[in-house]
Design a protein around this nucleic acid. Structure first.
Lengths: 273, 273
DNA sequence: CGCAGTTTTGATTCATCTCAATTTGTGTGG
DNA sequence: CCACACAAATTGAGATGAATCAAAACTGCG
């Protein structure tokens, strides 16, 4: 029942490292998990053909979003997970006083929607920061398939675990690092995720504003801007508005770890736990 | 195959709200999920008898830990999830400079181990803050059972989702709140979790040190202590070393929300998203 | 081409960290 | 049971990194 790989003009994600270009405007919908270019990062996984076949049997829908459009809101009944095919998203909650608090950024291949499973309703809002496309995966259907394929079930659990581990990493960043280190690890995290998608590790576009970065990192936008300037002066990065070049990734890494913990320098004799 | 509810002296968790007493020293191992007193919060869930039956069929092991003992370390191969039967645990990572960063506290009925699924190895350390008992749930076995029971599978997903949502909540706390608000929401979170277990919402013992609280909240222990003192002066709580009484929970709640965001007071006209 | 949103940069303020001293609590051995 | 040592908690005084307030420069869009 599953469609064979009809050629799509969706910009290929695999292949040589390139600058991440704005998403093409003239795209056809992708066709099959088997042929999907973000499949390795998605639910079917890279290893097993059968999981991809199974997913295709679901014949799930795609949904196209324009920049600024919402995928769902806090309170929206939970029915589906979403896989980002293309585009860039942010998740956020709106506090009582009406201000947005960014909880994450999502790019191609990443799953969105885990926040809704527990209470059958989403707890965060998700909005497209640029035009994009998502695969819609009805959750009960997914669970039925997962019970038929241990591989698919495991992949789902891996991805949820990854979300947990990633969030723990963010908690660490927020709890232990000063402004400079937070921004540095943010840039390294983005870089790493771009690499995993075949983009350049050293050069990319920030799809979000300084304010959104600051919100995510628990900093004010002015502070983010200042840190960018300082990192540039230290020749660690090059900033030109939304364009970022990492000139010295090891240098950035050093900022996040050895030093620049919240102004509490290492004890005389570090010992492993 | 499953054992019937042999009476255990494990202190009953359900029932009237009581002060959370130190865990009894003379306990027998619990016997069956069907009869378990933390079952509602655990994998079998409260609703379905069948899930509890299934879990019992697993005849999983229990493991007793003394205060200070480790359940697992970062790097330990991932094989099982653990359900806290009794006791109080902390999870933490050890940074390169040898200092501990607390990532969470776990109490009865809560699952531990999700951090290990993604990479087949645990990423955090877990240690008992008091004597305790955990159920050991071999993960591949659990997955096999989950594929036979959609209810069990869903409950597993709910619990993972809950972990994700809870961590997002912590991220929010760290990113947006000042010291006072962080401590207040920490106390309210603990209180709520104690209530869910049948303990008193208003009075409980802190099983962790000020330093561990501070680590978790991204504060120094002195700051935690100062906030405790201040909240006490404001008649919101009463502190006597490890013993905490919440005198005015709504007052605490008010601290976490309406005000006391990181010194950025609400905009003129708050509007809902 | 102008206007709104975004970003940068500067001057000042303030919350939290740091350093330090003291008190209190806890477990151990005589 | 007491004394001792050590860990944990409290409190104060001063230092500092990030927030705040403010203004100017830049970007992009209609």
């Amino acid at each position: 029942m599953r469609a064979m790989a009809v050629v799509s003009s969706e910009s290929s994600v695999k292949g040589g490292a390139r600058h991440n270009a704005p998403s093409a405007t003239a795209q056809r919908y992708p066709t099959s998990c088997v042929a999907c270019n973000v499949r390795d990062l998605c639910l079917p996984g890279g290893d097993s053909e059968s999981a991809a076949d199974l997913m295709d049997d679901m014949s799930y829908a795609r949904r196209r979003l324009r920049r600024g459009e919402s995928l769902y809101h806090a309170g929206t009944p939970f029915r589906s997970l979403y896989v980002v095919r293309s585009g860039f998203f942010k998740s956020f909650v709106v506090t009582e006083d009406g201000s947005e608090q960014v909880t994450g950024f999502q790019m191609a291949g990443e799953l969105i929607g885990f926040d809704g499973i527990e209470s059958d309703a989403h707890t965060v809002n998700v909005r497209a920061l640029e035009d994009g496309l998502v695969c819609v995966i009805p959750f009960t259907q997914l669970e039925r398939m997962a019970s038929r394929s241990l591989g698919l079930q495991r992949q789902l659990h891996r991805l949820m675990s990854r979300a947990i581990v990633h969030n723990q990493g963010v908690m660490m960043v927020l709890a232990t690092m000063n402004a400079e280190a937070r921004v540095a690890s943010f840039l390294l995290d983005l870089s790493q995720r771009f690499v995993a998608r075949g983009y350049s590790a050293a050069e990319f576009l920030l799809r979000m504003t300084r304010e959104e970065i600051g919100s995510y990192l628990g900093l004010k936008l002015e502070t983010v801007s200042r840190v960018f300037s300082k990192l540039q002066q230290s020749r660690l990065i090059e900033v030109e508005n939304k364009r970022i070049s990492l000139l010295d990734a090891p240098g950035l890494r050093a900022l996040t770890g050895g030093e620049n913990r919240k102004r509490d320098v290492s004890p005389p004799l570090a010992r492993a736990g």
